[in-house]
Write a protein that binds this DNA or RNA. Sequence first.
RNA 1: UCCUCGGUAGCUCAAUCGGCAGAGCGGGUGGCUGUUAACCACUAGGUUGUAGGUUCGAGUCCUACCCGAGGAGCCA
Length: 430
Amino acid sequence: MKWTYIEDISKFKDKEVELRGWVFTKRSSGKIRFLLIRDGTGIIQGTVFSSKKDDPLFKKFDTLTQESSLIVRGQVREDKRAPGGFELTIRDIEILQIADEYPITPKAHSTPFLMEHRHLWLRSQKQHAILQIRTELIKAIRDFFDGRGFRLLDTPILTPSACEGTTTLFETDYFDQKAFLSQSGQLYNEATAMAFGKVYCFGPTFRAEKSKTRKHLIEFWMVEPEVAFATLEDITELGEDLVVYLIERILEQNKKELEVLERDTKPLERVKKPFPRFTYDEVQKMLKKKGSKMEWGDDLGAPEETLLSEIFDLPVCITHFPAKIKAFYMQPDEKRPELVLGVDMMASEGYGEIIGGGQRIHDLNLLEKKIKEFKLPREDYEWYLDLRKYGSVPHSGFGLGIERTLAWICKIKHIRETLPFPRLLYKIYP
RNA sequence: UCCUCGGUAGCUCAAUCGGCAGAGCGGGUGGCUGUUAACCACUAGGUUGUAGGUUCGAGUCCUACCCGAGGAGCCA
């Protein structure tokens, strides 16, 4: 008999199949019993009928507990009464293991309890749907960049120095030296961009920041493109194209999952180019008018992000930030040197910043000056300065946070559900 | 790191003014031929986060600590 996955079940109408999976739930009603089987690709209801009370199949059924592993064989039938439209008439049950009393019941549980059982929570429908979208999102990101001729060139996770600040870095031993877990692949990306033209890296990022909010993770994933010769304008457009493409792909490929999550897809369907685009000056004035306490020179806080998404129902791009609130490598605006050519993209529906990037300094003298101003150890940046000595060109890039993007697409409250095993402030179990 | 709230059965919660620690779900047993978080009956299940204090008496009041949640700052 053919081993079949539940997602392919519609191809086997009226055929005998073998399913391998786990007990999702079961119900019994005298001489008919219902078994909901999940195999990772879907859930199907199996039925056992018998006129005999002591039928051996009933006896087997009765020993099954939630999440017991098994192999079932039977005939696929179309049945409108069954969730999913197809049902399995069970002929045989082969038990692999009878599960202990399963901690996650079909009733309500608190988040702390579920997080303690994250390794099991992954089997629940909603969590399964989110992570299913995650795998599609990652595939879509790869397809977007690969389709545009970008080269995937991953940057190191162990790095000899801080890219930006040192307070938020995880430190570890590297033989007799110190090493830090990467906070961004950007500086290395700039080197590979000068070698390959347009590149991206996709990997985990580590921030020892003691932030405890629904938008923060200690370990998160980021895709970072970097393009030689690109300006702020070019890179902003690339960011828009990427986000539009990702939303389209998920809407196409993950209808079932979005339904499980009860996600209203209308706000996502609206995500088309061009996004509203403003300079920092304009945004600061606009928000001030709406009651924000943000002064010129302040970064946007959580209340400002909420306010922005109340005004616009599309993601918003903000450019030309005060140099003081951005990183040392940001290219200053020619007309107003107190500003830098950075761009942040705020997701709609209050999800906040998903993209941060901009144009990088390509002038050697200016970069040297900035390194001094930011009191960075020059010896750590010699290789980075080399990029400005040997054929320097204007170039730009950005980073897109995978988990924040996914939280927005799924419209879930907390970012911790967007990856299989989130690392949160002080929390590293399981 | 700061502010706020919380910790009672395996889980989710209740317990009036300080006065016998309870319910639903889950588990077990039995019943039911179409269940959808099935239903009905019975049943077992407790060091009330930890340590100390006040009191005739503390789940409840006080002190310290531990753990968790929400929010802020910072960021993607």
